[in-house]
Design a protein around this nucleic acid. Structure first.
Lengths: 352, 352
DNA sequence: GTGAAAGCGCTAACAA
DNA sequence: TTGTTAGCGCTTTCAC
């Protein structure tokens, strides 16, 4: 098998200077043509374009960034792309950025809170114009405090911050997401309506996530409103690929729940799979609902009952917000997008 | 609701020069400390580190990139992140790059072949050190020809190129993926073993994808080897969210297939969902198999029968390969990673 | 309308 | 061991 052809010499790229020379004008004129800043004679413009084309000129954005104030790049920091909720958001975000002429530099933290600082630091060293990020817990994040202090433009995706009392100043952080608490409350109210009384909240890495806590609060709201006893959440070990043992324990208790409300779709799908592996039927024996509304939930059968967030829209909106902030417009706190309930087939009326 | 605090003045970042001044040394010394290039007295190093810390110095990677030869950034171009196969690859890729000190600039093309050129051009303007990309069709890609001609380091992910005869020179393109043809052949052989004789190949956007074609070839191999008639592929309109009409037509024929082999998992899951919406049972009435091995397939029930590619590993390996190519090592053609068959529950023995 | 020139922040010769 | 200096490619005053 013949080797790949050796790179034909890392071809030093042509610069604006050479274009100027070829076109018989100054570099300033070339720059003006490239940036369409007007004030160039038709003749000169023609010459420059021709020279650029014939030389295969490719403007060096690094040079431009160094000189200018902006890099036209956004830094994006997400926990993981394995979970489709983030991949969907990233897709929306990237498309929006691309159409605005912005590039995306991507980093993942793997949910490790300690990685958040180092990863974002790298992004800032690259002099991104702003950050779009999902942190583990926005209510206590040294990183966000630092960003605020330094005046770095950023927008949170998914994180719900509410207001932070800090030195007697009530502040809002720019964020895009849904009303997690209300959405969770509605879903649990739906389960109650289906006749369920013993409903368990299931979370992964519960304490670390502001969203999980908001959703748990919504669960409590609904249970309390229905006069039903609130249960402690079942926390499943974070990356557990098999949760049968934990489910076994849960269902062995007297008073075992008849419905499970999972704090995210990935968890819900894992739980459903493992319940079935244990010989239980969903929804006949146990109802299960999720939260996120990832596309793949629609491919299951029955379709996953869940709270649908507009994930791609969250990404898109984050870009819009960030652009506004960079433009110096005041940002009026969290952007709350609409959620919907998808009443799929994994939760059904309690029949026992 | 109080507005977000106005950015406290886009704080002009401190530069290496100010650090030098504060530390009482020259910029060269600061640079040397930062790059750990040795040759600095312990005393000077101490002073520099202290000054940098107290000033909150953040090295400007743009300056470094402009001066140096490398940006330590890889450009990544993928069709979409909605399909988990690419998201999983990107996750592996990003982690690997991060651990090697490389940043990732991400772009998606939305499967639009015309976007490939403009999007990659932007990446090259950013002077990425190399490209990792999945193109629609690697066998006829002006973009790849251009990259070859310019000597831009790149690695293809998923695309299977084989060799290209071009001006009597047989060339290989660096790529990472599985042996699509062989994998497809094995899966179809498995279906045959289960007693299926009328097996249909189902593809989305068939003509555009080199992978689909390879997989169809594998299908043909297996059918021919079994002495069974090869059928034309069923091409489903690209982004169809509902394929019931097409399935209806397919199944209405005499000689209707008893098994469907879908060219990717997303398609397989969509097909299964729609078959069920039509009142058909999978696998009892019809067997379905996919190709990709995305995680979510395991969350279905029954678990999706499919060809499992090591998606994250494909990303990881692409990074390794790219690093080698950049280092000037000869690249010995395509890297073929191992696939496995996941014999889930969506395909079963033909009982009729 | 056009050009000369001064940097943006950094690294790497080259001197000392 | 350390400092001086010349750029990397580009934009942008400021003259002409």
């Amino acid at each position: 098998m013949p080797p790949h052809p050796r790179s034909p010499e890392p071809t030093r790229q042509t610069t604006i200077r050479e274009v100027a020379q070829t076109a018989g004008v100054s570099v300033a004129t070339v720059s003006r043509v490239l940036n369409a800043s007007g004030q160039v004679s038709a003749h000169a413009e023609q010459a420059v374009r021709q020279a650029a084309a014939s030389l295969g000129f490719r403007p060096n954005l690094v040079g431009r960034s160094l000189r200018g104030v902006r890099t036209r790049t956004f830094g994006v920091m997400l926990p993981t792309l394995i979970h489709p909720v983030f991949a969907e958001c990233l897709q929306g975000l990237e498309s929006a950025a691309q159409s605005q002429g912005y590039a995306i530099t991507l980093s993942t933290t793997g949910y490790r809170a300690d990685a958040e600082e180092s990863v974002s630091e790298r992004l800032l060293q690259q002099r991104v114009d702003g950050l779009i990020l999902t942190v583990a817990d926005a209510t206590r994040s040294r990183l966000l405090d630092k960003l605020d202090a330094e005046g770095v433009p950023y927008v949170l995706a998914f994180n719900q911050t509410g207001h932070t009392n800090k030195k007697s100043v009530t502040r809002f952080r720019p964020s895009v997401g849904v009303d997690n608490r209300k959405a969770a409350q509605q879903m649990v109210a739906h389960l109650v309506e289906l006749g369920h009384q013993r409903i368990e909240f299931v979370a992964g890495q519960f304490m670390q996530s502001d969203r999980s806590r908001q959703r748990y609060a919504g669960y409590q709201d609904a249970m309390t409103a229905a006069g039903l006893p609130t249960r402690d959440p079942l926390e499943l070990p974070f990356d557990s690929t098999d949760v049968r043992a934990e489910l076994q324990d849960l269902l062995a208790t007297r008073d075992a729940p008849t419905a499970l409300f999972c704090s995210n779709d990935q968890l819900a799908m894992t739980v459903i799979r493992d319940l079935r592996r244990m010989g239980l039927r969903v929804p006949e024996d146990l109802s299960v609902a999720g939260f996120d509304g990832v596309r793949v939930g629609e491919w299951m059968s029955p379709v996953l009952t869940t709270v649908v967030q507009p994930n791609a829209d969250i990404g898109r909106t984050a870009v819009e917000l960030l652009l506004q902030i960079i433009a110096g417009e005041v940002c009026m706190g969290p952007a709350t997008l609409h959620h919907t309930l998808r009443l799929g087939g994994t939760a059904q009326r309690r029949v026992s």
